[in-house]
Write a protein that binds this DNA or RNA. Structure first.
Length: 970
RNA sequence: GCCGCGGUGGUGGAGUUGGUAGACACGAGGGACUUAAAAUCCCUUGGUAGAAAUACCGCGCGGGUUCAAAUCCCGCCCGCGGCACCA
């Protein structure tokens, strides 16, 4: 008989691949009678190295899903294409002196060969290539739509220039201040760049996340990247100037605590103020030095804050009219908010650090609420007395010990504490209380410690609720001179010295522990929620209420308003390289002067005229030399015949834009093209767009959850807003796979020489084994290390599946085993459920168990074999097609119906119960599943080993969990 | 620093609405077949003690809740990923 190895050796897999292609098994058209399913994977970048074993992980997963959906009767679109513009190809072409176009063509051909070798059910009639003019015509068309709606604009902006790639980078492409791609140095350069106004969509991109089913991590990363913060913008007047300093703050409730202001060194106002700055030299020097620092240096040096005061300049705090100093410092970023802040050192860590360093005033305006212990919670119906308390840390003159109180009746253990009386300062009160309660007289030093806090509690010794406002004071005694203590003062507590190392365990009142921690760990800004104090009309309000009230006040006075801010920046959309989509705009000096403005884009960018749609695609010109230039101009800028053109509007002399689009452009809309890839009058027809709608399931790498996902959602939302696509969100569901690491647990890379080539694996074990092993390796969303031993194991499994044929005896009587049938139905359910939740490894394990079971029973009916093949076919399509055919089934297994399990086979009639005694397993019972509780308990208690453990003890309780266990408590 | 994910045999990993920890696979050991090897088939395989029945210990560490905890709660340790002077 032919073995599985024979099948592989006779190119059995190839045979089926050719058959699928000839019969167009996986080609689809819009079919209103069927429910559609659109499964998408990120299309690969066709590098010269070809596929490595990392690629097939997402592809196989989505192939399994697509194949199953197809068998379930869905109209499945599972497309593939190539994202082929970009630097690696261009650099390789430069090195080898070839044309990027030719290199790309070859690479794509190699990728297609490898992908076909793996037996994916792609619709090969829909392959797209982003470098094909028939494709990028529509990338250009969509860009013009952005332009026409005023969302593309040219701006002279400091860009991030990578010295080694010779290319400007988007903010998103910088990782820790270095180039994401090559790790090289990035410097700031001023350059005219096309920008896309993605920030206009910041809110929409954020809100859209609530409507889609993405893995949580992807949502979190996207929303971090968008970085929305809610607050207010408001103006501070400058003394003797008309100009105002506008600031953004998330904490308008702390305005009374704003004790100075900081401008970023690049702030435009500095130019206007310069005649009044008394220390202009110093300021200018600081500005210069800050400008020289790269982003990397700025972040690295963040520990140590620097800055210079603008002498002679004072700002006025609008809530209290107070004059406050103005500084410049590079901890304030020019690019965020308004580039200026109000500093509230008491409630912002950075301002606190800065204020400490430069000795600026720190004013507390929010008090933390410290909850009282459970037993001291305020009692209803009791009067509440507001009282100021001082907590005093009294340090022994010689030893490192503190005077503490032990309140025997209340069960409190605390530092010295007492009330502050009217007219007293906190320090006065602390000294008085210290003398009254300890008798000590002479102090060496005294300091306030930390901030004021509030506590609400029931004071049993006075039978009232107290709302305590407390501060802590640290006192170091000078000597041990001690006066007589009035017994009245100490009737509730005993005093004693506690060593510093015992303090933590001794003190049990939460508010005292709070100050103990500050004493131990040092003071810091209080940035949490609390109660407004020292804030006039905000006093006693909670954070949210105070923010609301302050914003209302600012709006009423006309000096500020509610405002949201985003971390997200507009998208730098031009690159100075050859191998990208040309930007279809020309600059016409004539139209810049007198032209009529036909769109928002032309209003925003005077002189920039879009090409007529009939002149698209604007093809990349053929050039011999396309090396990047050192001056930062695109290589196209040197080509007169490309640059010099006529204006599509007035016919006068004009110049083409010579920058090209970034790598991300082609992938920002590609799934739409899959719906209608050959359309030459639109990027896709309305019919196709309406039929295929949203991508039902998009799987891709975690590395793309910020950039590609955000950009493509942005394009889709824009196209939706202008009525071009039916859904606002492009992808209904997004999942991610983990990386496949090399055998050594490292990332696969050419330089490490640990790359595994799929061609070799397919030659050795077959595509089915490779596919299935990749799915079996480990949890789909986690990283897993490659192991060829594991792959061997899967191959062995297929040998066993192949040899199942031996158990089928079609000539003889119908060999039907109820046990096997039950096993198969359980497996059908498990495999079906697991595929839906990406549990491929457990689905395969279940099928292995099933096959092992059949080997034990050595009996299999033909229909049963058919079901086994069907559920295995999404993983191993070639082998199962072959066996399907050999078993005499008609047609392709790829479109055979997915088997349906029968519920009746899922319920067991006999179950194994565990009997526990005091939580330990002592016996097992084989019983009918529907046995009564009484019977089961009786049986359990009669078990020999149970009797042994229960003997001589009282049975307190017997618990029966149906179908699972009996638990005896003795 | 903040946010997120994870830590289970020699290995990859199952099991997380609390209920037999270690499914499945790899590796290892033993056996059958063979002149021999490979392949294949069968058995054993968390640790310790024991011939066995069985007992005790075991899911990063320390506590807690519960008849019962890998799973829930509190406090830590380690690894990975994202963000990071964003006001």
């Amino acid at each position: 008989m032919k073995t599985y190895n024979d099948f592989l050796q006779e190119s059995g897999e190839k045979k089926w691949q050719e058959k699928w292609e000839a019969e167009k098994t996986f080609e689809v058209t819009e079919d209103a009678s069927k429910e559609k399913f659109f499964g998408l994977i990120e299309f690969p970048y066709p590098s010269g190295a070809g596929l490595h074993v990392g690629h097939p992980r997402p592809m196989t997963a989505m192939d399994v899903i697509s194949r199953k959906k197809r068998m379930e009767g869905k109209n499945v679109l599972y497309p593939i294409g190539f994202d082929a513009f970009g630097l690696p190809t261009e650099n390789y072409a430069i090195k080898t002196g070839r044309q990027p176009k030719d290199v790309t063509k070859e690479n794509i051909a190699n990728f297609i060969r490898q992908l076909k070798m793996l037996g994916y059910s792609f619709d090969w009639s829909r392959v797209i290539d982003t470098t094909d003019p028939a494709y990028y015509q529509w990338t250009q068309d969509i860009f013009l739509k952005f332009f026409e709606h005023g969302l593309a604009y040219k701006k002279n902006t400091p860009i991030n220039w990578c010295l080694s790639c010779k290319i400007g980078l988007a903010n998103e492409e910088i990782v820790n201040g270095a180039c994401e791609r090559c790790g090289g140095t990035v410097e700031k350069r001023d350059k005219e760049q096309w920008m896309l106004a993605i920030t206009k969509y910041a809110d929409k991109l954020l809100e859209g996340l609530d409507t889609v089913d993405y893995i949580e991590r992807a949502k979190i990363q996207q929303s971090n990247w968008i970085g929305k913060s809610t607050g207010a913008e408001l103006d501070f007047a400058i003394k003797n100037f008309e100009e105002k300093i506008r600031v953004f703050t998330t904490r308008p409730d702390t305005l009374f605590g704003a004790s100075y202001m900081v401008l970023s060194p690049e702030h435009a106002l500095l130019e206007m103020l310069k005649d009044n700055i008394e220390n202009l030299d110093e300021v200018a020097a600081y500005q210069k030095q800050a400008g020289l620092k790269s982003d990397l240096e700025r972040t690295e040096l963040q520990k140590d804050k620097t800055g210079v005061e603008l002498k002679g300049i004072k700002a006025i705090n609008p809530v209290n009219g107070e004059e406050i100093p103005v500084w410049i410092a590079d901890y304030v970023l020019a690019t965020y908010g308004t580039g200026a802040i109000m500093a509230v050192p008491a409630h912002d860590e950075r301002d606190f650090e800065f204020a400490k360093k430069f000795d600026l005033p720190i004013r507390q305006v929010v008090a933390e609420m410290i909850p009282s212990a459970e037993k001291d919670i305020p009692k209803e119906g009791k009067e509440t007395v507001r009282r100021q308390n001082v907590i005093v840390l009294v340090k022994h003159p010689e030893e490192d010990a503190y005077f503490c109180l032990d309140w025997t009746k209340q069960g409190w253990t605390s530092f010295v504490i007492g009330g502050k009386e009217n007219g007293e300062t906190w320090e006065d009160a602390a000294i008085r209380e210290m003398k009254e309660e300890t008798g000590y007289q002479n102090i060496k030093s005294i300091n306030l410690l930390g901030f004021e806090t509030h506590t609400n509690f029931f004071a049993a010794h006075k039978d009232v609720n107290r709302y305590g406002e407390q501060r802590a004071v640290y006192i170091e005694l000078a000597d041990d001179e001690r006066a007589e203590v009035d017994p009245k003062e100490v009737k509730n507590h005993d005093g004693k010295w506690v060593k510093v190392e015992d303090l933590h365990d001794f003190i049990n009142l939460d508010n005292h522990i709070y100050y103990y921690n500050i004493f131990k760990e040092g003071e810091k800004a209080f940035t949490g929620e609390g109660i407004a104090i020292n804030s006039d009309f905000l006093n006693d309000l909670k954070k949210e209420e105070a923010i609301e009230k302050m914003i209302a006040w600012l709006e009423e006075k006309g000096i500020g308003e509610k405002k949201d801010n985003f971390r997200l920046r507009d998208w730098v959309f031009s690159r100075q390289r050859y191998w990208g989509e040309p930007i279809p705009l020309v600059y016409c000096p004539h139209c810049a002067e007198n032209g009529e403005r036909k769109s928002k884009g032309e209003e925003r960018n005077p002189g920039w005229i879009p090409l007529d749609r009939k002149d698209l695609p604007l093809e990349l010109p053929h050039v011999e030399k396309y090396e990047p230039t050192d001056n930062g101009d695109s290589p196209l800028a040197d080509m007169r015949e490309f640059v010099e053109t006529t204006c599509p509007r007035c016919g006068g002399e004009a110049k083409r834009e010579t920058d090209t689009m970034p790598n991300w452009a082609g992938s920002s809309w590609y799934w739409l093209r899959y719906m209608d890839p050959h359309n030459d009058t639109a990027f896709a027809s309305k019919e196709a767009l309406n039929y295929w709608g949203q991508v039902d399931w998009y799987n891709g790498g975690m590395e793309h959850t910020v950039l590609h996902l955000l950009y493509s959602r942005f394009w889709n939302q824009f196209l939706h807003d202008i009525g071009e696509v039916p859904h606002s969100e492009p992808y209904a569901k997004r999942t991610s796979h983990g990386l496949i690491l090399a055998q050594d647990g490292e990332k696969m890379s050419k330089s490490k020489g640990n790359v595994v080539n799929p061609d070799d694996m397919v030659a050795k074990f077959g595509a089915d084994a490779l596919r299935t092993y990749i799915m079996f390796m480990g949890p789909f969303d986690q990283h897993v290390a490659w192991s060829e031993e594991g792959l061997k194991g899967v191959k062995k499994f297929f040998d066993r599946v192949w040899n199942l044929q031996e158990f089928i005896c079609s000539e003889q009587a119908y060999l039907f085993s109820e046990d096997v049938e039950r096993e198969i139905h359980k497996t059908i359910k498990k495999v079906g459920d697991d595929i839906e939740v990406l549990g491929f490894n457990t689905a395969i394990a279940r099928m292995m168990e099933m096959v092992n079971f059949v080997y034990k029973k050595k009996a299999l009916a033909k229909e049963q074999f058919g079901k086994i093949l069907s559920i295995l076919s999404p993983f191993a399509p070639h082998m199962t097609e072959e066996l399907w055919e050999k078993s005499g089934y008609e047609g392709s297994i790829s479109i055979a119906p997915w088997p349906v399990y029968d519920e009746k086979y899922l319920v067991e009639d006999m179950v194994t119960l565990v009997v526990q005694v005091n939580g330990k397993v002592r016996a097992k019972l084989e019983v009918a599943a529907d046995i009564s509780e009484e019977d089961v308990k009786a049986l359990a208690l009669a078990e020999e080993n149970v009797v042994k453990w229960v003997e001589g003890k009282d049975v307190r309780k017997v618990i029966y969990v149906k179908g699972k266990l009996v638990s005896v408590v003795v």
